[in-house]
């Protein structure tokens, strides 16, 4: 479970989140919000990439401020732009990156990388330079690079924004099939219609929270 207690966050003197308290227990949760609503900041708080100015965030009882490293092992994070997530020149090396950072034994790394190459349909790109792949393939690689670490929660920050229709469907399906707890920050309403819970943010505050059938219309109305 991920829990936020009275979280306030500001960049310098620019506040983005105001006294937010949330218990994220459902399996599939969406965070909806317009530009500047604070939703990306919220996402980054969930795995300790940033720590709140005031209040606290905990994952399975681990505080992101104190146990940042352990939290990041549990919470995978997928960003919007795959280009800045793929860090190694070729597909296989990039999949191995996070595993190496975790100091896993060599044969365990090889086993997991091989499994991920198969599972996410990347086997034929194995030795290919990442920059020769299409946007959709790159996003798949970026997601695979996170899932290969076997996190128990996965946070996605607008994973479909830069994709075409076909690749968007692929990613939506992939997210739908994940066994982990998933938190998705998005504008993509198609993606979240069968989610368990939708939290709508505006100006750094929760303005709607509930099943998609309730929260999504509230979001659309506010956009109106």
């Amino acid at each position: 479970m991920i829990e936020l207690r009275s979280v306030t966050h500001a960049y310098g003197d620019r506040p983005v989140l105001h006294d937010l308290s949330l218990r994220l227990e459902e399996r599939r949760i969406a965070i909806l919000g317009g530009n500047g609503s604070g939703k990306s900041t919220l996402a980054r708080l969930l795995n300790g990439l940033i720590v709140p100015t005031a209040g606290s965030v905990s994952v399975d009882g681990l505080d992101t401020r104190r146990d940042g490293r352990a939290v990041r092992q549990r919470v995978g994070f997928v960003f919007q732009n795959p280009d800045t997530q793929i860090v190694y020149p070729t597909v296989e090396e990039d999949l191995a990156f996070g595993l190496k950072a975790r100091r896993l034994p060599r044969d365990e790394i090889a086993r997991r990388v091989a499994a991920a190459l198969e599972r996410y349909g990347l086997a034929r790109y194995r030795h290919q330079p990442a920059h020769q792949m299409s946007g959709g393939e790159k996003q798949l690689l970026a997601i695979a690079g996170v899932l290969v670490l076997e996190p128990s929660h996965v946070v996605f920050d607008e994973p479909t924004t830069l994709l075409d229709l076909r690749n968007r469907r692929k990613v939506i399906q992939l997210v739908r099939d994940l066994p982990q707890r998933v938190v998705v920050v998005t504008h993509d309403l198609d993606m979240i219609m069968d989610f368990d819970r939708v939290v709508v943010l505006e100006g750094g505050r929760v303005v709607a929270d509930g099943p998609p059938a309730e929260a999504v219309p509230a979001y659309v109305e506010r956009l109106g």
Partner: peptide
């Protein structure tokens, strides 16, 4: 800006600069 995103991505994937990398 890319540097910010890339730093976050490295850390999100468990990279820790304090590691000496002796292994």
């Amino acid at each position: 800006t890319m540097a910010d995103d890339l730093t976050a991505a490295l850390e999100a994937r468990g990279y820790d600069p304090a590691d000496t990398g002796s292994q």
